[in-house]
Nucleic acid binder design. Structure first.
Lengths: 286, 286
DNA sequence: CGAAAAATGGAATAAAAATTCCACATGATG
DNA sequence: CATCATGTGGAATTTTTATTCCATTTTTCG
């Protein structure tokens, strides 16, 4: 993987290289190689001095070790160790750099697309691994149990809402998309009652309309399901259930893929719950 | 866990503390708290200067932040972040195991979400590998060269358009989202002229409004860029450039992830082209 | 509205770290 | 066994990084 000059940039390759080359290394360097393979965490987090002591060598030996592998210095080698723990979240600055360089080449659109795809995939996988199943079930039940679903989200969150509006409508749920046309957002939301559900979607920086309408609704006893990106979201107060969605971003552009998938899954899960319940109560009616 | 004096030594406690105390913190410190909770990985590996920049504060603020929580300095706080990875990730295999078990266990919403994620990832990767770079460049240049961008898409395609509207606006392009409020879609599109660009997004079954408006515009000499899902799309006739987007679907639900990524990439690519051109012509004006 | 307190930004300083350098040791080779 | 190439330890140096300090701004409260 990704070594142009025999100097690994990813941990697995580096590890393999160390194991392969260790027998031919000078004593101290071999010692360092062994230590690096055995206790990668210590290498990841330690300072040169600390690692040197643990490995029983001089600090300078570590630097020479790194250089003998083709790195500029020990720090560069340590970066590979760190990337191992960090990989799933592509490095912000480096990415931006790549973005800029590529578009300067005017290789442009397609390469950029590749980056966006990477970011979206990262986002999706990460979200799948971190989201709490219990929360999702709660949310799905909330949707399934509601009389009508009110969807609230502005700016970047709006596509999510309009997508849910489409999906829910297709699944047969009474749905109101609060699009705030003519500034009537608050009024659109006013029809919602305790039997209904307001799904509020908002990301930093939180649109005040969204927050205000959600709070007002909550105050009236309308249950609120919040999809948001941080535990500090102002939606936390009013929401009955909160699902935290952390998306990866590329430059200034945050992916929406994870949120959309989540939204879709919730809608379909809710539809399933409803269907199951309908079957239990009156199988004949279907 | 293990805090004698209210200063957490483990990450989870620290995180909880930050969430709890953030509302009462001064602005900048709250900002740091949010950053620390949202992007712990960046805090774990960054230097004070790098983290400060990403969080939009001064280095000294980070130190003060740590001290206000009872740590001696920022480094001590960072240790807590590092310990989190040390403790949590030593064994990759175990982690995978947990993950596997979790997704096998869970039924309902979460499992469904996993499926949607799989579908989206498949969609993304496939799209990245099949799309024609030349087309994308054409499309990006078209967007970059236009006076104003008109966005047309109904139903499932609407979220894509609203997302583009958001992105283009943020990138400084004059943008009109044809949302067809009050049935005024055709009239909204009428302002578009040969200097402008109409981006039409439509998937099977093609909404007639979209097709009609796109055709009418094309007849008037407005260039049309079509994002669609089949070579038989009725948009083929009127479009100057067509990008074909094939999305994977799960049951009746087709993913949108690929289309959204594509849309985003096009917008950013166009913005880059514009910037490059602006720099060439009048570097002084920037 | 005005004084006091708290918070903030940014430069200055101190601390710590990485890296380089070189004298010395070791081991291979003729 | 002399010589040379290679490897090593440790101090010196340079660079990076964290922290402190203080003038200025913002907020709070009488």
């Amino acid at each position: 993987m990704s070594e142009t000059d025999g100097t690994p940039r990813d941990f697995d390759t580096l590890r393999a290289l160390l194991i392969e080359r260790r027998p031919d290394m000078p004593k101290r360097l071999a010692q360092v190689a062994a230590f690096a393979v055995d206790r990668p965490d210590d290498v990841t987090f330690g300072t040169v001095a600390a690692i040197a002591e643990q490995a029983g060598v001089q600090p300078s030996t570590l630097v020479r070790f790194a250089q003998s592998l083709g790195y500029q210095g020990f720090s560069e080698l340590q970066d590979v160790f760190r990337a191992r723990l960090r990989d799933r979240w592509p490095d912000y600055d480096e990415r931006l750099e790549v973005l800029r360089r590529r578009s300067a080449d005017s290789q442009g659109a397609h390469a950029l697309f590749g980056d966006f795809v990477d970011t979206a995939v990262t986002s999706l996988i990460r979200l799948r691994d971190t989201i709490e199943p219990a929360r999702m079930d709660e949310a799905a039940r909330l949707i399934a149990g509601a009389r009508a679903i009110y969807l609230l989200g502005q700016r970047r969150a709006f596509p999510v809402c309009s997508y849910m509006a489409y999906a829910l409508a297709k699944l047969g749920s009474p749905t109101v998309l609060i699009d705030n046309v003519a500034g009537l957002g608050p009024e659109q939301a006013e029809a919602a009652g305790p039997e209904d559900l307001l799904i509020a979607v908002s990301f930093t920086p939180y649109t005040s309309l969204t927050v205000d309408v959600a709070n007002a609704a909550a105050a009236r006893g309308v249950p609120v399901l919040a999809l948001t990106d941080s535990p500090f979201s102002p939606l936390m107060e009013s929401a009955k259930v909160v699902i935290e969605v952390i998306e990866a971003d590329l430059g200034a552009f945050r992916s929406l893929s994870g949120t959309l998938c989540l939204a879709m899954a919730l809608c379909v899960a809710a539809a399933e719950i409803r269907r199951a319940e309908a079957e239990e109560k009156g199988p004949a009616r279907a």
